[in-house]
């Protein structure tokens, strides 16, 4: 059984600079894989190689079992993609753009008509279906870009920061679309900087930096592994130097700092047991704890600690 995306020892050398460096990864069928990494990590470069926009310096990239570096037409037959924010032909309307791409992908006229209506509905662009794209805003273009990626119901969808440029409502809507895709059994490979988005919709993540793989696995297992969490505490007392001094001596507490009149935060080693114990410790040194919570997301903490290690 061939996995939908298999990247094997992929390297991209930009005149001595390794944007992708011996990267190997597999996206299992029907998984929703988040592709994470800091700016310049090589995500877009990897995705451009997968979508026939860059050649690889070495290695292979298989889509549905076909090496895209050797036979891009066959490899991309069953793939939909949004790479960066694409531009559209300004003289075409969304409906015509979908017809163009649909015809290239071998869709029949009825098929294009029906699916075109569906996907424009999905991305809420029906009212704009017959207006020339030339003057659309960035977010509107991004919606059309997502529509064309799912037009032909490809088995594999590749997205590079699909919510970039969208307004908050647009982001929520795209997230809903993504969640729907997940239900519909697509395989999705998506780069993103929005860890809440990733944690919400992805089943798996792969984290890269400097073009190299740092970690990959299911979201659940990675979140469970997060060894350091950031804790935010609000107390009744004024946060004084003396108080902080006491807190800093507690088990597992590092990187402690005040965060306002009555608040402070710290990093805590260990899992949920340590987190629960720390709360009792805070109370045992006489603090009246008003709130006690993990700041941000587990995935974010993991991301931060892994990126810090790789710098």
């Amino acid at each position: 059984m061939t996995e939908p995306i298999v990247i094997n020892k992929l390297t991209k050398d930009f005149g001595g600079f390794m944007a992708v460096d011996d990267l190997s990864l597999t996206v299992p069928r029907r998984s929703f894989m988040g592709f994470l990494g800091p700016n310049g990590a090589g995500k877009t470069t990897t995705i451009k190689i997968l979508t026939n926009m860059l050649s690889a310096s070495s290695g292979e990239a298989y889509l549905n079992g076909v090496d895209v570096t050797k036979d891009p037409k066959a490899a991309l037959a069953n793939v939909g993609a949004v790479v960066e924010t694409p531009e559209f032909y300004p003289f075409l309307t969304p409906r015509e753009t979908l017809s163009y791409l649909g015809e290239l992908r071998g869709m029949s006229r009825q098929d294009i008509e029906r699916r075109g209506r569906e996907v424009l509905e999905t991305v809420k662009m029906t009212d704009w279906a017959d207006k020339r794209i030339g003057k659309f805003s960035k977010g509107m273009k991004q919606r059309v870009a997502i529509a064309q990626a799912i037009l032909h119901e490809p088995s594999v969808i590749i997205l590079d920061e699909p919510t970039s440029g969208l307004d908050p409502r647009g982001m929520v809507e795209v997230r809903e679309i993504l969640t729907e895709l997940k239900r519909a059994d697509y395989t999705v490979f998506m780069s993103s900087h929005l860890l809440n988005e990733v944690q919400e919709v992805c089943t798996d993540v792969v984290l890269i930096d400097h073009g190299k793989l740092l970690r990959s696995g299911s979201v659940a297992s990675l979140v469970g592994q997060a060894s350091v969490r950031r804790i935010e505490v609000a107390v009744l007392q004024k946060v004084s130097g003396e108080l902080l001094n006491k807190v800093s001596k507690l088990d597992g507490v590092t990187e402690l700092r005040a965060a306002g009149e009555n608040q402070f935060m710290f990093s805590l080693k260990g899992g949920v047991e340590a987190q629960s114990k720390a709360l009792m410790d805070l109370q045992s040194i006489g603090l009246n704890v008003v709130s006690y919570k993990e700041s941000g997301l587990a995935l974010e903490s993991l991301y931060m600690s892994l990126i810090k290690d790789s710098r």
Partner: peptide
Amino acid sequence: QSRTGFLLFPNPVR
């Protein structure tokens, strides 16, 4: 230059 290639090139077309 006008980035329409981002739309066209990922299609299964030589």
